[in-house]
Amino acid sequence: MTHDPGYNFAYLDESTKRMIRRAILKAVAIPGHQVPFGSREMPLPYGWGTGGIQVTASVLGPRDVLKVIDQGSDDTTNAVSIRAFFRRTAGVATTERTAEATIIQTRHRIPERRLTEGQILVYQVPIPEPLARLEPRIAETRRLHAMADYGLMHVKLYEDIAKHGHIATSYSYPVMVNERYLMSPSPIPAFDNPKMHMMPALQLFGAGREKRIYAVPPYTAVRSLDFEDHPFRPIRAPHRCELCGSGDTYLDEVLVDDKGGRIFVCSDTDHCQERQAMREAAE
């Protein structure tokens, strides 16, 4: 496959890629620290994954195999659209199989299958600042990160416990990276947080509108914030997948009628299909 000759390889011009690549390298060298970058207007709107797209475009080479998921699925409209964008502008091979991909761009999920050393996971990030809901001023949060002063967040979580008896954050659950930087894992469900810890793959995060890039290198400690007497607990719907029978994956709830009928199915469609195929083969 070749790329559309009307565009530079992977759309971005070379000087933009260079600037983004430098930001990515510094982000990897300072795990969890948000590096500002000169984010460009992309031909897709802010909020549609422009940060992830710019990171992917800067990392991608002709031999890569790209997978794009949104909500865990390859077939959601925005995932389809982003995959088509890179097929057109970079001519790269794409796949829906997690195991075959070298770069996986994602919105809101980490694949169920354990990622490997040969892979890069690129997250689309809406709000990179984990403290944003507690302190919206960037000038101030930057200072707090510099001093590793995360008291605000601990107070917030503690108030949750006082009020609800447990930490009432179910997604975008804040993590400490290598015990230094507080980081937003992007709006993945807290269920996915443990997968970030010591992951063999490189994790890159791009926030286009907020103009920040950050990273977690492979084999890096990522700890979900908690308290000794109130340990972190990931939430998932207490059901089995209707399609593959899985009892340990993250599930979507699907309404099947207007009388309260609902079923639960895997959010990670590739993983689910793999399990269904295995089940069929076994029968």
Binding site: P187, I188, F191, Y250
Partner: peptide, 10 residues
């Protein structure tokens, strides 16, 4: 855009 994964958590 779809937010059903985070909504499910909520």
């Amino acid at each position: 855009l779809p937010h059903y994964v985070d909504f499910q958590s909520e």
